[in-house]
Design a protein around this nucleic acid. Structure first.
Lengths: 339, 339
DNA sequence: CATATCTTCCAAACCGGTTCGGACTCCTTT
DNA sequence: AAAGGAGTCCGAACCGGTTTGGAAGATATG
């Protein structure tokens, strides 16, 4: 059942039926109801390809996966992608996932030339991310999850990692901790830089050391969390508190602390960032982890909405949001042992 | 630059240019070279939407994410998706990811009605998966990663989990283990059933117990691996060897064993299944884990190729593959301690 | 009553490709 | 020399929507 057949059935023109279904004002209300009813009865759905050709919009958002598989194996990114697909679906758009087998830049160029998507979506922004400039140069509209250095204005949603870490460190310092380590994700990520800024700010406010060896960066995995924590505990003045950038890093951190025979909460405190993944819940830890929380799935949904608004003609400058994180008290952050 | 403009530049008709670019035989070789050269020079890329409308093919494969976020938080699924996107790209197709905010079935029906994809791709098949029948009923071609019960014929790639577990158990039994547990993934998954079959087969061949309490199923996470292993170690006759269905389950398994003060390899043996994720490498464990290996990313790429062949008109019955797994010896599987 | 305006609808053009059914040239066959 | 067949190329139709530029009739305005 296509538009022409539907129109014939109704004794109307294609034009009128199209307008009735798309909510134009110049069609009689009575006629519109008749059309909508018939469309429902005949199970009519407009052909996506035809619509795209006619409107010039593709109705799709694009995500490019980096060639290295590391990002997709990251469950946080997967969850973000799920949110994106969810949000896109709600806005009546598709999510087009492109893997780059021949370099990331080539992937973007292909998409731009074929006009395959309306908006590109970028996540895991690097400090001064080159992709933003490339996309702007290619004339592709872009929405990002995260901010980066540089003067270009683009719609984005960011999570306030800086404030999250700042508040976590403030809490630990307030409890009496004097040596507070930051176990962060990949060093080249904008989010990691934000975390370091927050860490520094809170430490200097309390007059505490921000020695370089107390800051570690690396892949956001249990394995790296374990190794980093072991190394930190081996230092001459080991930290009594750890701020971890993800639940996976925190898992490794806990394991390393357990290996040393230390008790979490009593001997050593931990605050982790929780992205809200169903598979690693802070309450399931022993003891339950104090966390900074922000749902990455919700962020994905919202980014898709921002992209839809951008296509709808909103001013990019209005489409920027920074989400605060919640600090949730549980049992893993307590006062350090008396000496 | 579109086809008409390109044709005008060349002094040819749209027809000839289109045929030259698509490799039809009825165009002079000299002309074809001239056309291809001009297309390259003017940076011409056919408009995706127009092509789709004209051919009736969408050029896209579809994946529906289940409403619950659990699957996307699974890094193994994420890696499979990355492989899918990779393979689709190589075949010149798109990958459409659709989240279902209103029920999985509704998502499939939407895609079918709008003719948005050429082939649906299914993963994480359930035992007797209802989705296959639904899609066949909706007239959507389907390719799956995994097999399921039922008589319908559909293109699929499966990984031989049954044989993997069988060989792992044979190895452990050969080393002298008498009580061998299986720590598996979600019980409703077809792969989990395959593993149980392999486990039973190998145990009975060696005259060993396949008592129900030695088999556990649950989410494929570190947390569940930990809890399951603790429970198994608390049994009256605790196992001396564990076969884990994923690296994450194995992580938890290792932690539980460590908590008990047991040494992996010496006191207790482990064999895990490794999907080839870069973030959890078996060599990084202490000691290095003996594994059954099969790259889930490679599987994703191959599934996309199968889908492309299906669209190309291959017989579905020819598009079925079962991949063997490699058994890789490392240090975590050794003879049990003498009593 | 003539004119302007509004409402409602439609025919035809358009988006940018693919493909059917010739048409023309040149070469071979009988 | 006529007939048949490759080898090339083209005009026009088609895919299924949206959108432009009226047109007809109803209603309001002077």
């Amino acid at each position: 059942m296509n538009l022409r057949e539907l129109a014939q059935h109704l004794g109307l023109s294609k034009t009128t039926v199209s307008r009735a279904l798309n909510g134009f004002s110049e069609v009689n209300e009575e006629t519109r109801l008749r059309v909508v009813e018939a469309a429902r009865r005949f199970n009519y759905t407009p052909n996506v390809s035809a619509k795209r050709l006619a409107t010039g919009e593709t109705g799709a958002f694009g995500v490019v996966l980096p060639g290295a598989s590391a990002e997709m194996a990251d469950p946080v990114f997967g969850e973000f992608l799920a949110g994106l697909a969810d949000g896109a679906g709600r806005c009546g758009r598709d999510l087009y996932v492109n893997a780059t087998f021949d370099g990331e830049e080539a992937g973007y160029r292909r998409l731009a030339r074929a006009k395959a998507v309306d908006v590109m979506i970028l996540a895991n922004l690097k400090i001064d991310d080159l992709r933003i400039r490339l996309l702007s140069h290619l004339g592709l509209q872009t929405v990002t999850c995260g901010r980066t250095a540089g003067s270009l204005i683009y719609p984005h949603l960011d999570i306030d990692h800086e404030d999250g870490v700042r508040r976590a460190v403030e809490l630990l310092a307030g409890l009496g901790h004097r040596t507070i380590a930051l176990v962060s994700g990949p060093a080249d990520l904008s989010a990691s830089e934000q975390r370091m800024v927050g860490w520094h700010a809170a430490l200097s406010r309390h007059g505490l050391s921000a020695a370089a060896h107390l800051f570690t960066a690396g892949p956001s995995t249990e394995g790296h969390g374990y190794r980093a924590t072991r190394a930190l505990l081996d230092a001459p003045t080991p930290p009594t508190a750890f701020v971890c950038a993800s639940m996976f890093l925190a898992s490794g951190c806990c394991r390393a602390i357990g290996d040393r025979g230390l008790r979490i909460g009593e001997d050593v405190s931990i605050i982790a960032h929780d992205d809200g993944l169903a598979t690693v819940r802070p309450e399931a830890f022993e003891p339950a982890l104090t966390t900074t929380f922000s749902s990455i799935r919700a962020a994905g949904i919202r980014v898709a909405e921002l992209a839809a608004q951008l296509v709808g003609g909103s001013d990019p400058a209005d489409l920027t949001e920074v989400w605060p994180v919640d600090l949730i008290f549980r049992d893993s952050a307590q006062a350090p042992p008396r000496r």
